[in-house]
Design a binder for these strands. Sequence first.
DNA 1: TCAAAAGTGTTCTGTTTACACCCATGG
DNA 2: CCATGGGTGTAAACAGAACACTTTTGA
Lengths: 230, 230
Amino acid sequence: MTLNNYKNEDKVLLAVDCIIFGFDKEELKILLIKRNFEPEKGKWSLIGGFLKKEENLDEAAIRILHHLTGLNNIYMEQLYAFSKVDRDPAERTISVAYYALIDIASHDDDLIRIDSAQWFSLKNAPKLIFDHHRMVERAIARLQRRALGKPIGFELLPEKFTMRQLQKLYEAILDKKLDKRNFINKFNSLDILVKLDEKDMSMSRKGAYLFQFDEEKYRSKVEEGFSFKL
Amino acid sequence: MTLNNYKNEDKVLLAVDCIIFGFDKEELKILLIKRNFEPEKGKWSLIGGFLKKEENLDEAAIRILHHLTGLNNIYMEQLYAFSKVDRDPAERTISVAYYALIDIASHDDDLIRIDSAQWFSLKNAPKLIFDHHRMVERAIARLQRRALGKPIGFELLPEKFTMRQLQKLYEAILDKKLDKRNFINKFNSLDILVKLDEKDMSMSRKGAYLFQFDEEKYRSKVEEGFSFKL
DNA sequence: TCAAAAGTGTTCTGTTTACACCCATGG
DNA sequence: CCATGGGTGTAAACAGAACACTTTTGA
């Protein structure tokens, strides 16, 4: 018959860490910053900060990302709460990780001024503080499952892109080579792309047709999900 | 050039709420308790409590479940952190939801003494406090995705069960009728069941063969996942 | 003898995979 | 004129969906 007015319960620091995935035509990258406070000052870290009383976690993630990088209007999704007792040696902290996908090229301007933030390809990212590497691992796993269950790409690609870029994106996420024809057929059958008359001439002499997402159809496919075997 | 020693950051109460799914041969149910403290005393609620400084979230979930229901050795999985600013009117609280699957029959003895805990079928569960209904919704969605991506059932069924029980479990989770022959064929092709010589005579005159999971094969299928379209 | 649940295979259809050649162009 | 990347279709294998009748036995 407890009378619980919450007064005797422990309170903790609640951190939010962001795994920001970017794609730059060839490779999947993550955005890291050099930490400028103790502990672990000077080491590479995910972008992170603390939840404030007057905001929810989604808002905190957006605020923190914006504050540290200048990035705006980034859609983020909650990943997992990490809570090992000694994960942060300085103080008991629980961290809720968020992940996001962005097109590196179209956000470079925002980022270029932030000298402590830097893109690293997944393969040769530096060692990270605390349990941040586990966050990244889990984010990659989630991204892969995600890529097979919904179309992604709207967030990671520029507005206009070639089929080859789209395929490279999937190859980067899934970390395997895909068959060109099967990929195109599959994607076309989803009926979410619009072929433009324009060509991208930067990659070949022949040029490659540019595509755009049909935003409405894309959104509805994202809603309903689908099964994408590759 | 912030010098951040964490001292100025807000601390919050971190709750853990548990969505306990049970299965009793026909229906999917959830375990609720009548809340015995303010606010919302006397209302139905998920099983919940607060994280303590010296434990991680998984441990807290196990402790809370055990403390309120007597249930032991229940495997739980983290679902999502709910953080709307005014979700708990009494105080700013973030709640990390966990969900679990258990076989009702084999845990009835533990539970029978706890008069404030009760099983409700999903369809006619009572109104819940705070945002607990959203937690349940999300847990159901997760459970459904889960059921299609990994074999489940080990947790929700008694050790020996009939094919019909297994099928009913999947029907309850996915909330749709499945074809008997296709279901059996599919499950057999996974090669994780052992057919016993025993029959269950309680459901029919003819009797139905009992099966067991081959624990080793089951575990490895759980690891790797699979794609189960039904 | 019949009601109630158990058990069992085949066909059809759609999806996934594997695979190779010509095209357009700038240098 | 040729090197480079772009574009295209088909056949074979596999997985999923639909479907109906026989068996057992306790009452």
